[in-house]
Design a protein around this nucleic acid. Sequence first.
RNA 1: GGGCGAUUGGCUCAGUGGUAGAGCGCCUCGUUCACACCGAGGAGGUCACUGGUUCGAACCCAGUAUCGCCCACCA
Length: 885
Amino acid sequence: MAELNPLSPRVPATRAVREVPDRVSLDGVEQRWDASWSQQGLYAFDRTAAREQVYSIDTPPPTVSGSLHVGHVFSYTHTDVVARYRRMRGAEVFYPMGWDDNGLPTERRVQNYYGVRCDPSLPYVEGFVPPHQGDAGSGGKSAKDQVPVSRRNFIELCVRLSAEDEQQFEALWRRLGLSVDWSRTYQTIGERARAVAQAAFLRNLARGEAYQAEAPGLWDVTFQTAVAQAELEARDYPGAYHRVAFHRTDGGGDVHIETTRPELLPACVALIAHPDDERYQHLFGSTVTSPLFGVELPVLAHPAAEPDKGAGIAMCCTFGDLTDVQWWRELRLPTRSVVGRDGRLLRETPDWITSDGGRALYADLAGKTTFSAREAVVAGLRDSGELDGEPVATQRKANFYEKGDKPLEIVTSRQWYIRNGGRDEELRAALLTRGAELGFHPEFMRVRYENWVNGLNGDWLVSRQRFFGVPFPVWYRLDEDGNPDHGNPLVPAESALPIDPSTDCPEGFTEDQRGVPGGFAADPDVMDTWATSSLSPLIVGGWLSDDDLFSRVYPMDLRPQGQDIIRTWLFSTVVRSHLEFGALPWSDAAISGWILDPDRKKMSKSKGNVVTPMGLLEEHGSDAVRYWAASAKLGTDAAFEVGQMKIGRRLAIKVLNASKFALSFGAADEPVSLDPAHVTRPIDRAMLAGLADVVEAATASLEAYDHTRALEVTETFFWTFCDDYLELVKDRAYAAEDDPEGAASARAALGIALDTLLRLFAPVLPFATEEVWSWWREGSVHRAAWPTAEPLRVAAGDADAGVVAAAGAALAALRKVKSEAKVSMRTPITAVTLTVPSPARASVELALGDVRAAGRVTGALRLVSGEDGTSVARDAELGVAEQRA
RNA sequence: GGGCGAUUGGCUCAGUGGUAGAGCGCCUCGUUCACACCGAGGAGGUCACUGGUUCGAACCCAGUAUCGCCCACCA
């Protein structure tokens, strides 16, 4: 007898069939197994595991104030397949879940839900009760109805509301079968996250990587906050070219420029043309006066002026666009801002406008939005005759804050920045190197990272003029006049974090010194949400709070995420990790694609696709939905296709039925054997040889983050296994009395194959495979070892995997005869000539007994070799199907 | 303007040099002794287009078109 080969190291090689149900079903498997896994702590992370054993995942925290959609189900399934595979490979998988409750969406939701708004100037109120609760109320919708509360109170309400949302999210994830360790969750506004965000910032500050600067920057007038480059979105925006006359002060006539922003005429500081532009050579060095306002301005040369744009000469205003900022900086032009932070023209008439007419006109513009100011200026230009012709409509691109609906303005403000290579070639090169070290899956996503880093035009602006968020943990001394000393911020000790400078005091000061000359003042700003989420691996890994854990999970193995946030979440995480540790935060990044509508548009709620994830799971079953998700490659957009889910459901049910059948050959007194020594028949060995190939292919694919290929090879094998192999050997497996050795061979082969297939399917179909596993095995399939090809090869010996295919083709030929004769497959064939391809003849002969049995060939079977590549049955004589008693 | 994907049967997609594949849908038939949430058989494609390389191209090269996306573009 061959050496017993334990295919499942953690389970005895044979085990009595316990309870294969008479009727199998997927009904209720999700609830049953989720409860069981949860109770067993099956996915709990063993924090005593050594680092080499750990596979850690930096799970994306979904935004709890939003709702989960099918895209989440899609991408989180991809991650779970990886997690389950790694766990079966023997890794201790660190798979936490975070909740993103930081940022604008949550702020708005809390405002509306509780009827409050955040006002950091207020003191904390113990036991605060919000005015109302729930989305239905109308009380909190408008700002004036909202009760102002301290930041600490606001954050408490946020955490409270998130907790409710989290329950629903967790319920969905559990139903989907995510193998998350639910004891390891975090919130991006939670205490740990605030402490980590502040500590990381203070370290950046101490090392000079974070700094403050007062500079013109992009500004959203609706949200009244500065906006970072990564949050920009270029959108089409209707505009019009206005051809406007400036007047030469030397009396030489008019100079015409074209502008889409005539309302910025009062902010004009110069006219600029390209130094080589012949048309304007003679004007360089001279001055002109602006129309309507009569302000005297120089005509200057700068290479950023493009001769073929507009009139080739531009008016430079402070500030109409980023080119204006460049000119202003490089030509050292004065600052003449007229647009305020609210997007309206400043109330006070600027002192650089001196003419009576100009001052009168400005007084009329003061307080107007840029839109109505534009109308007023155009009307004025028309009246004065300084508008040449009529405005020409144009479609242009304008920068928008991705959550805003008005074009961004440029205003000057004091902001915090973190260096990200945007103005530092050395750092940029280092971050490009980090990107090159990271394993992108799929590989082509790497260029998005590189494009982004190469296109950075400034450092990362991390401060936001909002009230809700992680506050900057700094204060400023106030001088005798009450002016803050921004150059020397006061910082807390790391051990005191998190703090809120609006309610906590810097060391050496008392609360009554807040805001008074000689005292101190808090930094009013909060951090960009990416400044917190860029630290997600540190937050969840226990950085600064649990060194032991941190050393076991960090740097992490995998960052799964969407392609849309490579420039934000992925890049900013790399930046923080590089600055703090000089290394990547993870070795690999798995980028999921979009879910598209049937009409190939990105799926969105607004388009009426109200497919709720829970509804999908209830309708099709979780394994089916997972199958659909797992069928799509990383980085590739996938269609939302119910049909694919139905196929997944069919597969899951087939797994149950085929397993039930394979196990039915055993009995309580005669256990299903997993002993490869029993597998003696060529076709049985051939099947195992084919299975060994499948194991190798599936394993190699999963190692390369190609779960679709792994699923495909497994599934293809499985259907052939069911349709051909199972049919071929079932009679022999039944006939234990006539041919004990043949029956034992078939039964052991079935058992080994089933055991292997269940493991191969487990990452994608966790519920169906666990259900079957429970019928005959101990423990969970999800903690069983991932199969390896070697023991299968040993069992297969020198068998050729082609035997199953050859026998299957022969069987198909026999079936075809019956199908064409339109008779039952049970119809006996009393005589037939079976022509098979010459190379397959030997294989068919090896399995001829099984072929005859499966084809119900009761009489003479003449086997001949053919030249053509297909198997054909001819001259068949058909009997009459007998009804079994 | 620069770049990245995609283009294969009605649909969704595999297939990186050697006689076009799968599933769904469709057609025909069968069937309840694993599986009607079923089985068997069948029809259906000049692989977007144009050139090139090669004994041989869905696959490699050059170019074109269409679709999607990323980056840049506010005079």
